[in-house]
Design a protein around this nucleic acid. Structure first.
Length: 412
RNA sequence: CGGGAGAUGGCUGAGUGGUCGAAAGCGGCGGUCUUGAAAACCGUUGAUGGGCAACUAUCCGGGGGUUCGAAUCCCUCUCUCCCGGCCA
Protein backbone atom coordinates (compact mmCIF):
# COMPACT_ATOMS: atom_id res chain seq x y z
CA UNK A 1 0.00 0.00 0.00
CA UNK A 2 1.12 3.42 -0.90
CA UNK A 3 1.97 5.67 2.05
CA UNK A 4 -0.88 8.20 1.87
CA UNK A 5 0.81 10.58 4.27
CA UNK A 6 3.89 10.64 2.10
CA UNK A 7 1.68 11.39 -0.86
CA UNK A 8 0.01 14.27 1.00
CA UNK A 9 3.25 15.78 2.22
CA UNK A 10 5.58 15.13 -0.68
CA UNK A 11 3.32 14.76 -3.66
CA UNK A 12 5.72 15.86 -6.40
CA UNK A 13 8.41 13.50 -5.23
CA UNK A 14 6.07 10.50 -5.14
CA UNK A 15 4.66 11.33 -8.54
CA UNK A 16 8.14 11.66 -9.96
CA UNK A 17 9.25 8.31 -8.58
CA UNK A 18 6.12 6.52 -9.75
CA UNK A 19 6.79 7.72 -13.30
CA UNK A 20 9.18 4.80 -13.55
CA UNK A 21 6.19 2.51 -13.12
CA UNK A 22 3.95 4.36 -15.53
CA UNK A 23 1.25 5.15 -12.99
CA UNK A 24 -1.70 7.27 -14.10
CA UNK A 25 -0.98 10.67 -12.55
CA UNK A 26 -4.60 11.71 -12.38
CA UNK A 27 -5.16 8.78 -10.03
CA UNK A 28 -2.49 10.18 -7.75
CA UNK A 29 -4.11 13.62 -7.82
CA UNK A 30 -7.40 11.98 -6.97
CA UNK A 31 -5.93 10.09 -4.04
CA UNK A 32 -4.43 13.27 -2.70
CA UNK A 33 -7.61 15.30 -2.89
CA UNK A 34 -9.76 12.50 -1.50
CA UNK A 35 -7.39 12.01 1.40
CA UNK A 36 -7.47 15.70 2.24
CA UNK A 37 -11.25 15.76 2.07
CA UNK A 38 -11.30 12.76 4.35
CA UNK A 39 -9.09 14.48 6.88
CA UNK A 40 -11.37 17.50 6.97
CA UNK A 41 -14.55 15.48 7.35
CA UNK A 42 -12.99 13.37 10.06
CA UNK A 43 -12.13 16.44 12.09
CA UNK A 44 -15.73 17.64 11.96
CA UNK A 45 -16.97 14.18 12.84
CA UNK A 46 -14.65 13.94 15.81
CA UNK A 47 -15.87 17.25 17.20
CA UNK A 48 -19.47 16.14 16.90
CA UNK A 49 -18.67 12.85 18.58
CA UNK A 50 -16.92 14.66 21.42
CA UNK A 51 -20.03 16.76 21.96
CA UNK A 52 -22.23 13.68 21.90
CA UNK A 53 -20.04 11.85 24.40
CA UNK A 54 -20.02 14.80 26.82
CA UNK A 55 -23.78 15.22 26.69
CA UNK A 56 -24.40 11.51 27.09
CA UNK A 57 -22.46 11.60 30.31
CA UNK A 58 -24.52 14.56 31.45
CA UNK A 59 -27.64 12.52 30.80
CA UNK A 60 -26.61 10.00 33.42
CA UNK A 61 -25.87 12.74 35.93
CA UNK A 62 -29.17 14.55 35.29
CA UNK A 63 -31.09 11.32 35.61
CA UNK A 64 -29.67 10.76 39.08
CA UNK A 65 -30.48 14.30 40.12
CA UNK A 66 -34.03 13.87 38.89
CA UNK A 67 -33.81 16.76 36.40
CA UNK A 68 -35.97 17.02 33.32
CA UNK A 69 -34.33 15.04 30.54
CA UNK A 70 -36.57 15.79 27.57
CA UNK A 71 -34.61 18.71 26.19
CA UNK A 72 -31.27 16.97 26.46
CA UNK A 73 -32.72 13.87 24.94
CA UNK A 74 -33.93 15.65 21.83
CA UNK A 75 -30.59 17.44 21.46
CA UNK A 76 -28.82 14.13 21.62
CA UNK A 77 -31.16 12.56 19.12
CA UNK A 78 -30.61 15.35 16.65
CA UNK A 79 -26.88 15.30 17.07
CA UNK A 80 -26.92 11.55 16.72
CA UNK A 81 -28.39 11.84 13.25
CA UNK A 82 -25.72 14.30 12.20
CA UNK A 83 -23.03 11.98 13.50
CA UNK A 84 -24.55 9.01 11.70
CA UNK A 85 -24.76 10.88 8.41
CA UNK A 86 -21.22 12.16 8.61
CA UNK A 87 -20.00 8.77 9.69
CA UNK A 88 -21.40 7.04 6.62
CA UNK A 89 -19.86 9.76 4.47
CA UNK A 90 -16.48 9.23 6.09
CA UNK A 91 -16.73 5.49 5.63
CA UNK A 92 -17.64 5.87 1.99
CA UNK A 93 -14.69 8.15 1.39
CA UNK A 94 -12.36 5.81 3.24
CA UNK A 95 -13.52 2.90 1.16
CA UNK A 96 -13.13 4.84 -2.07
CA UNK A 97 -9.67 5.91 -1.03
CA UNK A 98 -8.53 2.45 -0.09
CA UNK A 99 -9.86 0.96 -3.33
CA UNK A 100 -7.93 3.44 -5.43
CA UNK A 101 -4.84 3.40 -3.26
CA UNK A 102 -4.64 -0.37 -3.20
CA UNK A 103 -4.26 -0.43 -6.98
CA UNK A 104 -1.21 1.86 -6.95
CA UNK A 105 2.03 -0.11 -7.23
CA UNK A 106 5.03 0.27 -4.98
CA UNK A 107 7.47 3.15 -5.41
CA UNK A 108 10.65 1.94 -7.14
CA UNK A 109 13.92 2.15 -5.25
CA UNK A 110 16.47 4.79 -6.26
CA UNK A 111 18.68 2.10 -7.72
CA UNK A 112 16.06 0.89 -10.21
CA UNK A 113 16.91 1.83 -13.80
CA UNK A 114 14.45 3.63 -16.05
CA UNK A 115 12.87 1.52 -18.74
CA UNK A 116 9.71 0.25 -20.31
CA UNK A 117 10.02 -3.51 -20.42
CA UNK A 118 12.30 -6.53 -20.32
CA UNK A 119 14.54 -5.03 -23.02
CA UNK A 120 15.66 -2.29 -20.62
CA UNK A 121 16.68 -4.58 -17.77
CA UNK A 122 20.33 -4.38 -16.85
CA UNK A 123 22.59 -7.38 -16.63
CA UNK A 124 24.62 -7.22 -13.44
CA UNK A 125 26.89 -10.20 -13.89
CA UNK A 126 27.31 -13.65 -15.32
CA UNK A 127 28.32 -16.66 -13.26
CA UNK A 128 29.90 -19.76 -14.83
CA UNK A 129 30.20 -20.24 -18.57
CA UNK A 130 27.51 -22.11 -20.45
CA UNK A 131 28.62 -25.64 -21.35
CA UNK A 132 29.71 -26.47 -24.88
CA UNK A 133 28.42 -29.54 -26.64
CA UNK A 134 29.95 -31.71 -29.35
CA UNK A 135 26.42 -32.35 -30.58
CA UNK A 136 23.27 -30.27 -30.91
CA UNK A 137 21.74 -30.08 -27.40
CA UNK A 138 18.05 -30.88 -27.23
CA UNK A 139 15.27 -29.05 -25.48
CA UNK A 140 14.04 -30.87 -22.42
CA UNK A 141 10.84 -32.16 -24.03
CA UNK A 142 12.88 -33.81 -26.78
CA UNK A 143 15.21 -35.65 -24.44
CA UNK A 144 14.77 -39.37 -24.65
CA UNK A 145 14.03 -40.10 -20.99
CA UNK A 146 10.71 -40.84 -19.36
CA UNK A 147 11.05 -38.31 -16.56
CA UNK A 148 8.35 -35.95 -17.74
CA UNK A 149 4.89 -37.21 -18.66
CA UNK A 150 3.15 -34.33 -20.37
CA UNK A 151 0.26 -36.24 -21.92
CA UNK A 152 -0.84 -37.96 -18.76
CA UNK A 153 -0.49 -34.76 -16.71
CA UNK A 154 -2.93 -33.10 -19.09
CA UNK A 155 -5.28 -36.07 -18.84
CA UNK A 156 -5.44 -35.68 -15.08
CA UNK A 157 -6.15 -31.95 -15.09
CA UNK A 158 -5.73 -29.87 -18.24
CA UNK A 159 -3.02 -28.31 -20.34
CA UNK A 160 -0.02 -26.86 -18.49
CA UNK A 161 -0.01 -29.71 -15.97
CA UNK A 162 2.77 -32.29 -16.04
CA UNK A 163 3.36 -35.54 -14.19
CA UNK A 164 6.86 -36.58 -13.15
CA UNK A 165 7.86 -40.22 -13.11
CA UNK A 166 10.78 -42.29 -11.97
CA UNK A 167 14.07 -40.44 -11.88
CA UNK A 168 12.30 -37.17 -12.79
CA UNK A 169 10.08 -37.40 -9.72
CA UNK A 170 12.99 -38.40 -7.55
CA UNK A 171 15.23 -35.64 -8.84
CA UNK A 172 12.50 -33.11 -8.11
CA UNK A 173 12.29 -34.31 -4.51
CA UNK A 174 16.09 -34.36 -4.25
CA UNK A 175 16.22 -30.75 -5.42
CA UNK A 176 13.65 -29.66 -2.87
CA UNK A 177 15.52 -31.32 -0.04
CA UNK A 178 18.86 -30.06 -1.24
CA UNK A 179 17.62 -26.48 -1.52
CA UNK A 180 15.98 -26.48 1.91
CA UNK A 181 19.16 -27.83 3.50
CA UNK A 182 21.27 -25.33 1.60
CA UNK A 183 19.11 -22.43 2.79
CA UNK A 184 18.95 -23.71 6.35
CA UNK A 185 22.75 -23.67 6.51
CA UNK A 186 22.59 -20.01 5.58
CA UNK A 187 20.29 -19.17 8.45
CA UNK A 188 16.89 -19.50 6.83
CA UNK A 189 14.44 -21.33 9.08
CA UNK A 190 12.33 -23.90 7.31
CA UNK A 191 8.58 -23.38 7.52
CA UNK A 192 5.62 -25.29 6.15
CA UNK A 193 2.36 -23.48 5.47
CA UNK A 194 -1.12 -23.96 3.97
CA UNK A 195 -1.42 -23.91 0.18
CA UNK A 196 -4.82 -22.29 0.50
CA UNK A 197 -5.12 -18.69 1.64
CA UNK A 198 -7.98 -16.33 2.44
CA UNK A 199 -8.68 -12.89 1.04
CA UNK A 200 -6.93 -10.95 3.81
CA UNK A 201 -3.78 -12.97 3.28
CA UNK A 202 -3.75 -12.40 -0.48
CA UNK A 203 -4.44 -8.70 0.06
CA UNK A 204 -1.57 -8.41 2.53
CA UNK A 205 1.03 -9.35 -0.03
CA UNK A 206 -0.62 -7.42 -2.88
CA UNK A 207 -2.14 -10.14 -5.09
CA UNK A 208 -5.63 -8.86 -4.28
CA UNK A 209 -7.66 -6.91 -5.14
CA UNK A 210 -5.95 -6.21 -8.43
CA UNK A 211 -4.92 -9.65 -9.66
CA UNK A 212 -7.77 -11.97 -8.73
CA UNK A 213 -7.88 -13.26 -12.32
CA UNK A 214 -4.46 -14.82 -11.94
CA UNK A 215 -5.54 -16.97 -9.00
CA UNK A 216 -7.38 -20.26 -8.70
CA UNK A 217 -10.36 -19.64 -6.43
CA UNK A 218 -12.12 -22.40 -4.51
CA UNK A 219 -15.72 -22.82 -5.58
CA UNK A 220 -18.16 -21.44 -3.05
CA UNK A 221 -15.47 -20.29 -0.63
CA UNK A 222 -13.55 -17.07 -0.29
CA UNK A 223 -10.31 -19.02 -0.49
CA UNK A 224 -7.59 -19.26 -3.12
CA UNK A 225 -4.75 -21.58 -4.03
CA UNK A 226 -1.50 -19.78 -3.33
CA UNK A 227 0.47 -18.52 -6.35
CA UNK A 228 3.70 -18.62 -4.32
CA UNK A 229 4.78 -19.47 -0.77
CA UNK A 230 5.64 -15.79 -0.40
CA UNK A 231 1.95 -15.18 0.29
CA UNK A 232 1.39 -17.40 3.35
CA UNK A 233 4.95 -17.10 4.68
CA UNK A 234 5.00 -13.30 4.65
CA UNK A 235 1.52 -13.26 6.17
CA UNK A 236 2.60 -15.45 9.07
CA UNK A 237 3.22 -12.21 10.92
CA UNK A 238 0.29 -10.20 9.59
CA UNK A 239 -1.31 -7.85 12.16
CA UNK A 240 1.55 -8.38 14.58
CA UNK A 241 3.95 -6.09 16.35
CA UNK A 242 7.24 -7.95 16.55
CA UNK A 243 9.89 -7.55 19.16
CA UNK A 244 12.97 -5.95 17.61
CA UNK A 245 15.09 -8.83 18.88
CA UNK A 246 13.25 -11.18 16.51
CA UNK A 247 14.57 -9.34 13.45
CA UNK A 248 15.65 -10.18 10.89
CA UNK A 249 13.37 -13.18 10.43
CA UNK A 250 14.72 -15.33 7.60
CA UNK A 251 12.60 -18.22 6.37
CA UNK A 252 12.64 -20.80 3.63
CA UNK A 253 9.63 -22.76 2.48
CA UNK A 254 8.86 -25.42 -0.08
CA UNK A 255 5.42 -25.26 -1.62
CA UNK A 256 3.44 -26.02 -4.70
CA UNK A 257 2.39 -22.86 -6.52
CA UNK A 258 -0.79 -22.40 -8.54
CA UNK A 259 -1.21 -19.80 -11.24
CA UNK A 260 -3.82 -19.33 -13.92
CA UNK A 261 -1.30 -17.78 -16.33
CA UNK A 262 -4.27 -15.88 -17.72
CA UNK A 263 -2.31 -13.46 -19.87
CA UNK A 264 0.14 -15.93 -21.36
CA UNK A 265 -1.89 -17.87 -23.93
CA UNK A 266 0.44 -19.21 -26.57
CA UNK A 267 3.63 -18.57 -24.59
CA UNK A 268 5.81 -21.49 -23.57
CA UNK A 269 3.11 -23.98 -24.41
CA UNK A 270 5.63 -26.77 -24.84
CA UNK A 271 7.57 -28.30 -22.02
CA UNK A 272 7.62 -27.52 -18.35
CA UNK A 273 8.62 -23.84 -18.36
CA UNK A 274 5.19 -22.42 -17.67
CA UNK A 275 2.81 -24.55 -15.63
CA UNK A 276 -0.41 -24.00 -13.69
CA UNK A 277 1.14 -25.91 -10.81
CA UNK A 278 4.82 -25.95 -9.98
CA UNK A 279 7.12 -26.65 -7.06
CA UNK A 280 9.20 -23.86 -5.64
CA UNK A 281 11.46 -23.33 -2.67
CA UNK A 282 11.04 -19.78 -1.48
CA UNK A 283 13.01 -17.37 0.69
CA UNK A 284 11.18 -14.76 2.76
CA UNK A 285 12.76 -12.21 5.07
CA UNK A 286 11.32 -9.68 7.46
CA UNK A 287 13.73 -6.96 8.50
CA UNK A 288 14.22 -3.54 9.97
CA UNK A 289 14.19 -0.94 7.20
CA UNK A 290 17.88 -0.18 7.57
CA UNK A 291 18.80 -3.84 7.16
CA UNK A 292 16.74 -4.72 4.14
CA UNK A 293 19.33 -3.89 1.48
CA UNK A 294 21.86 -6.16 3.15
CA UNK A 295 19.38 -8.99 3.48
CA UNK A 296 18.37 -8.49 -0.14
CA UNK A 297 21.97 -9.02 -1.24
CA UNK A 298 22.17 -12.07 1.00
CA UNK A 299 19.10 -13.59 -0.64
CA UNK A 300 20.39 -12.93 -4.15
CA UNK A 301 23.73 -14.46 -3.19
CA UNK A 302 21.95 -17.45 -1.68
CA UNK A 303 20.06 -18.20 -4.88
CA UNK A 304 23.09 -17.53 -7.08
CA UNK A 305 25.38 -19.73 -4.98
CA UNK A 306 22.79 -22.47 -5.10
CA UNK A 307 22.85 -22.39 -8.91
CA UNK A 308 26.63 -22.34 -8.86
CA UNK A 309 26.71 -25.36 -6.57
CA UNK A 310 24.55 -27.17 -9.10
CA UNK A 311 26.99 -26.16 -11.82
CA UNK A 312 24.41 -24.16 -13.71
CA UNK A 313 25.55 -21.10 -15.67
CA UNK A 314 23.40 -18.09 -14.95
CA UNK A 315 23.23 -14.33 -14.95
CA UNK A 316 21.85 -11.69 -12.62
CA UNK A 317 19.55 -9.06 -14.04
CA UNK A 318 18.30 -5.89 -12.39
CA UNK A 319 14.74 -5.19 -13.47
CA UNK A 320 13.89 -1.76 -14.82
CA UNK A 321 10.93 0.26 -13.55
CA UNK A 322 8.58 -0.91 -16.29
CA UNK A 323 9.28 -4.60 -15.71
CA UNK A 324 9.02 -4.41 -11.93
CA UNK A 325 6.17 -6.30 -10.28
CA UNK A 326 3.32 -4.57 -8.49
CA UNK A 327 4.62 -4.92 -4.93
CA UNK A 328 8.34 -4.72 -5.60
CA UNK A 329 10.54 -1.70 -4.97
CA UNK A 330 13.55 -3.52 -6.37
CA UNK A 331 13.97 -6.88 -8.08
CA UNK A 332 16.90 -8.93 -9.26
CA UNK A 333 16.10 -11.87 -11.52
CA UNK A 334 18.36 -14.88 -11.84
CA UNK A 335 18.34 -16.39 -15.29
CA UNK A 336 19.74 -19.83 -15.93
CA UNK A 337 21.25 -21.01 -19.18
CA UNK A 338 19.10 -23.33 -21.31
CA UNK A 339 21.30 -24.93 -24.00
CA UNK A 340 18.34 -26.29 -25.95
CA UNK A 341 16.82 -22.83 -26.24
CA UNK A 342 20.25 -21.25 -26.45
CA UNK A 343 19.28 -18.50 -24.04
CA UNK A 344 18.97 -17.50 -20.38
CA UNK A 345 15.58 -17.88 -18.75
CA UNK A 346 14.25 -16.73 -15.38
CA UNK A 347 14.61 -19.31 -12.63
CA UNK A 348 14.50 -17.06 -9.60
CA UNK A 349 13.36 -13.56 -8.73
CA UNK A 350 14.34 -11.74 -5.56
CA UNK A 351 12.39 -8.64 -4.51
CA UNK A 352 12.53 -6.08 -1.76
CA UNK A 353 9.05 -4.65 -1.23
CA UNK A 354 10.26 -2.16 1.40
CA UNK A 355 7.25 -1.35 3.62
CA UNK A 356 4.66 -1.81 0.86
CA UNK A 357 3.45 -5.24 1.95
CA UNK A 358 4.11 -4.43 5.61
CA UNK A 359 1.70 -1.49 5.43
CA UNK A 360 -0.98 -3.62 3.78
CA UNK A 361 -0.44 -6.55 6.12
CA UNK A 362 0.28 -4.35 9.16
CA UNK A 363 3.51 -6.07 10.12
CA UNK A 364 5.38 -3.81 12.52
CA UNK A 365 8.07 -3.96 15.14
CA UNK A 366 8.62 -2.05 18.34
CA UNK A 367 11.63 0.21 18.14
CA UNK A 368 12.30 1.93 21.46
CA UNK A 369 8.78 3.22 22.04
CA UNK A 370 7.48 3.63 18.51
CA UNK A 371 5.92 1.05 16.25
CA UNK A 372 7.50 1.02 12.82
CA UNK A 373 6.72 -0.93 9.68
CA UNK A 374 9.12 -3.71 8.79
CA UNK A 375 10.51 -4.36 5.34
CA UNK A 376 9.52 -7.62 3.67
CA UNK A 377 11.57 -9.42 1.04
CA UNK A 378 10.92 -12.51 -0.96
CA UNK A 379 12.74 -14.52 -3.54
CA UNK A 380 12.75 -17.89 -5.11
CA UNK A 381 15.47 -19.99 -3.76
CA UNK A 382 14.84 -21.65 -7.08
CA UNK A 383 11.83 -22.76 -9.05
CA UNK A 384 12.15 -26.53 -8.79
CA UNK A 385 10.57 -27.45 -12.13
CA UNK A 386 12.74 -25.07 -14.05
CA UNK A 387 15.81 -26.24 -12.16
CA UNK A 388 14.92 -29.80 -13.06
CA UNK A 389 14.72 -29.08 -16.77
CA UNK A 390 17.79 -26.83 -16.60
CA UNK A 391 19.71 -29.80 -15.22
CA UNK A 392 18.26 -32.04 -17.92
CA UNK A 393 19.36 -29.70 -20.69
CA UNK A 394 22.73 -28.73 -19.25
CA UNK A 395 23.75 -32.22 -18.18
CA UNK A 396 22.55 -34.11 -21.26
CA UNK A 397 25.01 -36.48 -22.93
CA UNK A 398 25.31 -37.44 -26.57
CA UNK A 399 24.00 -40.95 -25.85
CA UNK A 400 20.78 -39.44 -24.49
CA UNK A 401 21.59 -40.03 -20.83
CA UNK A 402 21.60 -37.29 -18.22
CA UNK A 403 24.26 -36.88 -15.55
CA UNK A 404 23.08 -36.03 -12.04
CA UNK A 405 25.07 -33.13 -10.51
CA UNK A 406 27.39 -34.50 -7.83
CA UNK A 407 25.95 -32.39 -4.99
CA UNK A 408 22.62 -34.15 -5.50
CA UNK A 409 23.97 -37.69 -5.41
CA UNK A 410 23.41 -38.19 -1.72
CA UNK A 411 19.82 -36.99 -2.11
CA UNK A 412 18.96 -39.46 -4.87
C1' C B 1 -21.18 -32.31 9.43
C1' G B 2 -24.62 -32.63 14.35
C1' G B 3 -24.95 -31.17 20.10
C1' G B 4 -22.85 -27.91 24.07
C1' A B 5 -19.46 -23.88 25.94
C1' G B 6 -16.77 -19.68 24.96
C1' A B 7 -13.88 -15.15 22.60
C1' U B 8 -12.23 -8.91 27.50
C1' G B 9 -5.36 -5.28 27.94
C1' G B 10 1.61 -8.86 27.17
C1' C B 11 -0.77 -13.24 30.12
C1' U B 12 -4.61 -15.15 33.78
C1' G B 13 -9.31 -13.30 34.68
C1' A B 14 -13.67 -10.01 36.87
C1' G B 15 -17.24 -7.11 34.80
C1' U B 16 -25.41 -8.00 32.39
C1' G B 17 -27.32 -0.71 30.40
C1' G B 18 -24.65 5.42 32.53
C1' U B 19 -17.27 8.91 34.75
C1' C B 20 -15.69 1.22 32.32
C1' G B 21 -10.65 2.01 28.52
C1' A B 22 -12.29 -1.61 31.81
C1' A B 23 -11.29 -4.77 38.94
C1' A B 24 -7.69 -8.11 40.69
C1' G B 25 -3.39 -11.09 40.04
C1' C B 26 0.96 -12.08 37.07
C1' G B 27 4.46 -9.89 33.95
C1' G B 28 7.08 -5.13 32.48
C1' C B 29 9.18 -0.38 33.98
C1' G B 30 10.87 3.17 38.04
C1' G B 31 12.13 3.50 43.21
C1' U B 32 13.13 2.11 48.67
C1' C B 33 16.05 -1.60 51.17
C1' U B 34 21.02 -4.36 49.89
C1' U B 35 28.21 -4.58 48.86
C1' G B 36 25.30 -6.84 44.65
C1' A B 37 21.02 -9.80 43.73
C1' A B 38 16.50 -12.17 45.45
C1' A B 39 12.39 -11.33 48.66
C1' A B 40 9.40 -7.47 50.65
C1' C B 41 7.32 -2.68 50.14
C1' C B 42 5.92 1.99 47.26
C1' G B 43 4.81 3.96 42.56
C1' U B 44 3.90 3.25 37.40
C1' U B 45 2.21 0.47 33.09
C1' G B 46 -3.21 -1.05 26.98
C1' A B 47 -3.44 -0.03 21.50
C1' U B 48 -4.24 2.97 17.11
C1' G B 49 -5.28 7.55 14.48
C1' G B 50 -5.40 13.23 14.49
C1' G B 51 -2.88 17.58 16.89
C1' C B 52 3.43 21.36 18.31
C1' A B 53 0.61 20.77 22.62
C1' A B 54 -3.50 20.88 25.83
C1' C B 55 -6.52 17.52 24.12
C1' U B 56 -9.52 14.39 21.18
C1' A B 57 -11.64 10.18 18.41
C1' U B 58 -11.79 4.91 17.90
C1' C B 59 -10.95 -0.01 20.00
C1' C B 60 -13.56 -5.49 25.04
C1' G B 61 -13.18 -11.53 18.08
C1' G B 62 -15.54 -9.14 12.86
C1' G B 63 -20.04 -6.84 10.89
C1' G B 64 -24.98 -5.01 11.78
C1' G B 65 -29.13 -3.63 15.19
C1' U B 66 -31.89 -1.78 19.84
C1' U B 67 -31.04 2.69 23.15
C1' C B 68 -30.24 9.48 24.81
C1' G B 69 -26.21 5.89 26.33
C1' A B 70 -23.61 -0.99 24.92
C1' A B 71 -17.85 -4.87 27.02
C1' U B 72 -22.87 -5.61 29.04
C1' C B 73 -29.30 -6.66 25.28
C1' C B 74 -30.61 -8.68 19.99
C1' C B 75 -29.06 -10.64 14.97
C1' U B 76 -25.16 -12.49 12.01
C1' C B 77 -20.28 -14.14 10.64
C1' U B 78 -15.55 -16.02 12.03
C1' C B 79 -12.60 -18.58 15.32
C1' U B 80 -11.43 -21.65 19.79
C1' C B 81 -12.61 -25.62 23.30
C1' C B 82 -15.54 -30.15 24.80
C1' C B 83 -18.96 -34.46 23.10
C1' G B 84 -20.52 -37.38 18.78
C1' G B 85 -19.95 -38.65 13.35
C1' C B 86 -16.27 -38.88 9.32
C1' C B 87 -11.15 -39.23 8.20
C1' A B 88 -4.87 -39.06 6.72
Amino acid sequence: MLDIKLLQNDFDNVREKLKKKKVDETLLEEIKSISLELKEKKKILEDLQAEQNAKSKLFGVYAKEGKNLEELKSELSQNKEKVALLNTQVKEIEEKLSIIASTIPNIPDESVPEGADEEDNIEIKRVLTPPTFSFAPKEHWDLDVDWLDFERGVKLAKSRFTALRGTGAKLSRALINYMLDFNAKRGYQEVCVPYIANRDTLTGTGQLPKFENDLFKLDGEDLFLIPTAEVPVTNLFRDEILDVSMLPIKMTCYSECFRKEAGSAGRDTRGMIRQHQFSKVELVSITKPEESDLVFDDMVACASDLLTSLGLAHRLVMLCGGDLGFSAAKTVDLEVWFPGQNRYREISSVSNTHDFQARRAMIRYKDEKKNRLVHTLNGSSLAVGRTLIAIMENYQNEDGSITIPSVLERYM
